[in-house]
């Protein structure tokens, strides 16, 4: 009788461990997908890029993330995309704050700077401006540029935050003069992202 009881006890324990293990494993997967974990990512200041995403060398985590989000990454010969979800001080981007994106980009034939929702969609705004291209941006005499991110109209290069509760910035370099396979960048080669007033 005692033996029989022990067995039931064992199977209940086993079932519990299997269930808990599966839940933990799936939770870990979901957490990694939500956070966008990718191996081999290159970080420079607030910007992150994954140079291997544009080839079949893409790591399994990035591959799973693309399946989850539906994103089609740029091909290695097309260019490279950098994303920023935090400012230059490391604080998460806040839609209630104004930001200044200033500096320059690595050499590339063209670049675009786009403001997107965390789901990867342009954010609705009355000015219907979702980003800037390198051709249309207003520059200082030295070639540097400054983009104001704000919910309210700003003079110069104004990129509206719209009604987004959360947002991210994507900088795409098309046909860059960079060796993408051995990419390493320092913070000064990419624009700084400085927080200004918050409301």
């Amino acid at each position: 009788m005692a033996n029989w009881r022990l067995r039931v006890h064992f199977f209940i324990k086993l079932l519990g461990v299997v269930l808990a293990g599966v839940i933990l494993g799936l939770g870990g997967t979901l957490l990694m997908l939500e956070r966008g974990v990718s191996f081999g990512a290159v970080k420079a200041g607030p910007w992150t890029a994954s140079p291997h995403n544009g080839s079949l060398d893409v790591d399994p985590y990035a591959r799973a993330m693309f399946a989850y989000t539906g994103e089609l990454p740029l091909g290695a010969a097309e260019g490279i995309g950098f994303t920023a979800q935090k400012d230059s001080m490391g604080a998460p981007l806040n839609a209630h704050c104004d930001y200044i994106v200033s500096g320059h980009t690595p050499q590339a034939r063209y670049w675009t700077m786009t403001l997107l929702s965390p789901e990867g969609l342009p954010v609705a705004n009355a000015a219907r401006r979702y980003g800037f291209t390198s051709a249309e941006i207003l520059r200082a005499p030295g070639g540097n540029f400054e983009i104001a991110l704000s919910r309210h109209a700003r003079p110069g290069n104004w990129l509206p935050i719209g009604d987004a509760s959360k947002f991210m910035l994507v900088l795409r370099l098309y046909d860059p003069d960079l060796n993408i396979a051995t990419l390493s960048l320092d913070e000064a080669s990419l624009p700084a992202l400085i927080r200004k007033n918050c409301r």
Partner: peptide, 25 residues
């Protein structure tokens, strides 16, 4: 055993998500 099962579930979902669980482009 718990760590092993959690690891297995995690790795399987990461590898099989792109081809089996998600709608491919």
């Amino acid at each position: 055993a718990l760590i092993f099962i959690a690891g297995l579930a995690h790795i399987l979902t990461i590898f099989y998500l792109p081809t089996h669980f998600a709608k491919v482009p």
